[in-house]
Design a protein around this nucleic acid. Structure first.
Lengths: 148, 148
DNA sequence: GCATAATAGTTATGCGCATAACCATCCTGT
DNA sequence: ACAGGATGGTTATGCGCATAACTATTATGC
């Protein structure tokens, strides 16, 4: 691939990352959330109480990141931790009532953001978008340093 | 749009951001660069000596971010700053010889990364990709807080 | 059954990027 | 010509995310 084409792809991905994230931030700020935290809340809503290793896997974030996210959300009263009965190393994270209440609002924002994002695109393009993005993600993820 | 579809889009964008960035990081590390710095070097290669406001605009990063990036690249000897003759507030940034030498290698990585990223996609999909991503970027960027 | 490896989690540290507040310089209108 | 605003840059601070190094527990191989 020639450089101009490659650069167009890479730079477009970089800019979309920045802007989509920035837009998410401005939408989430009124709820008192920071970008990334919404992913954790949504995952808990999806899968129910989970240990941090599961969250780390689901979010695609490293364990230390999850530790911090959970700590902050716990401080905000949106999430609660309990020691796991089966494994004394693990702690189970779950939504509090406040957390559950907030998830509803997060979902609305999430829908609004997705609609904004794909505005003006054809129905079929939108339909194929997640698959397309996941393919690219898997392409670069597969080359990750060794593990998995 | 229903939540599942919206979430698929948003999460796919989030994950692609993380992974593409992570992959870029592992490719750039051997060159002693961190993610984001390559964009600045490539922009200088493209447009020649520029003042930081131009870089900020071209990279889509805020001025404070540019200040730090330039400072670090200057420390690494890849970039040089000179006061602007026309405007005493501005400083002109340009590549050093070392910087120019490194840009060549960055370009190679950049091509390799783009090829990895779009592996397995049809030729037409790849051709339309930058435009597609830019459309989405503009969609969320347009709603930005007031300015531009 | 016990040493060793694998796994869950945390702390420390560092980078990228953002916003807020601020200074220095320039441009503009009257 | 000069006050007020716009523009270029920097500093301070904070969050997200990463890696490295560590502890505590659980699983495995001989």
């Amino acid at each position: 691939m020639d450089f101009d084409r490659a650069d167009a792809v890479n730079q477009a991905i970089r800019l979309l990352s920045l802007r989509h994230r920035a837009r998410a931030a401005t939408l989430l700020t009124p709820l008192g959330l920071h970008t990334g935290q919404e992913a954790l809340l949504l995952e808990l809503d999806r899968s129910g109480p989970s240990i941090q290793a599961q969250l780390s896997e689901a979010l695609g974030s490293e364990p230390p990141s999850v530790t911090l996210m959970v700590r902050k959300l716990e401080g905000a009263g949106l999430v609660r931790r309990a020691p796991s009965a089966a494994d004394r190393r693990a702690s189970v994270v779950e939504l509090t009532e406040d957390g559950k209440a907030l998830v509803g609002r997060v979902k609305e924002l999430w829908c609004a953001l997705a609609e904004e994002t794909v505005a003006g695109l054809s129905e079929e393009t939108v339909a194929g978008l997640p698959e397309l993005l996941r393919t690219m993600t898997a392409n670069v993820d597969g080359r990750r340093s060794g593990h998995r």
